[in-house]
Nucleic acid binder design. Structure first.
Lengths: 218, 218
DNA sequence: CCTACCGATCGGTAGG
DNA sequence: CCTACCGATCGGTAGG
């Protein structure tokens, strides 16, 4: 917290007790966790108001509609996720190390902002109509940017001889599939698998070197 | 269809035109796709009835509540997914081949029953209350069974020298993370990445052998 | 930030 | 499989 390279999505999120936060911050916290627990359609403005500790009508002083409240949460989620992940990619280090930091950043985001991760997973078709399209547009834009960035990294890696030369698009695809799969384990409420840092590091090595293992001189 | 090792979750699902299906089957189809598109809380019984082509009250001749309708869809989804995936694991072949078939089966399930995949992803915290717990219990049970089965496969593989000896739990974890990440790409509506069989095969080889590549004699 | 209220829609039932 | 209807709750507004 003290260095704060990656900051929470809003002041005091997940850290300060509710009484010490502004009503606006408590609104964001309550909405994020309720949407994550019950889905967007399964959460009413009255539910949110109850958790915030105000009357439903008061919420409309902060956001003009339930839809806009979701969009604001989504924007903050995407920004925070970007910070956690991309920071590792820019480190001056070997590509394996940079990709490992990307993965570790993503997992740290999931641990520290679990509800926010759930928010932008809503893009995967849980919201219909016009709002659904807005959500999806925002998520797709960010995903594509990350994909391009990762492909760039793999091109650099191939040039530097750090990975086997090959299609960087496919390499980035395999990497992102693995990262997304790991993150998925942090979403499921009770059955989720959330490896600690040591396990995660072991899993990364296994992934990077391949399940088939390095066969010396074979 | 003609050999039918893996059958659709109900007769004619995704194959027959709506008019040729029974009302019950159209009900299941309509509910699955609407839940997938708009989420459970975002779909009303009236929405479903409209797509089926009957009045809302008529739906209650088939299921006593919206909750039970979801549970039935979930049961069928889990059964179908199991069939598609586990069949490949039992093949008399090398472990790499068996795991590849598992992955290919999972992807085929996602392609042919996209809405059903979305259904049991609902377990990841989009449904609250008692129903949410029922959903989660069903999904967790199946996931754990698959995890145990995969660990068994990796133990066999290590004994046969087909993978580097190591912790089978971790090996299974890495494999499942990759598979889940690939499936996730099939869920997102428009931005989803759905590699064709050729790309998938290339991705699998890349995954199995490791992004770092096999370094001969290094 | 509140009370009071709006029309619309929700899941579900009665009765046929 | 229908019409007709139930009480409850929905997102949102008026006005202060």
């Amino acid at each position: 917290m003290s260095e704060g390279i990656e900051s929470p999505a809003w002041p005091g999120a997940g850290v300060l007790p509710p009484e010490a936060q502004s009503t606006h911050d408590r609104l964001l916290t309550a909405a994020a966790s309720l949407f994550a627990e019950r889905g967007f359609g399964g959460t009413s403005m009255a539910d949110i108001a109850e958790r915030v500790g105000v009357r439903k009508a008061s919420l409309y002083n902060y956001y003009p509609s339930k839809d806009e409240l979701l969009m604001e949460l989504l924007r903050r989620s995407l920004t925070a996720a970007n910070e956690y992940c991309l920071h590792g990619l820019d480190a001056p280090a070997a590509v394996e190390e940079r990709l490992w930091r990307y993965l570790r950043g993503a997992v740290r985001f999931a641990r520290e902002n679990g509800e926010l991760l759930a928010i932008f997973r809503l893009a995967a078709g849980q919201i219909g109509g016009e709002l659904g399209e807005r959500v999806e547009r925002a998520v797709v834009t960010q995903k594509q940017a990350q994909r391009r960035r990762l492909e760039e990294v793999f091109r650099e890696a191939a040039a530097a001889g750090e990975v086997t030369p090959g299609d960087p698009t496919q390499q980035a695809y395999v990497f992102r599939a693995f990262v997304n799969g790991v993150l998925l384990g942090h979403l499921d409420c009770h059955c989720g698998e959330r490896p600690d840092d040591e396990c995660l590091c072991g899993a990364w090595e296994l992934f990077w070197n391949g399940l088939a293992g390095r066969r010396e001189g074979a």
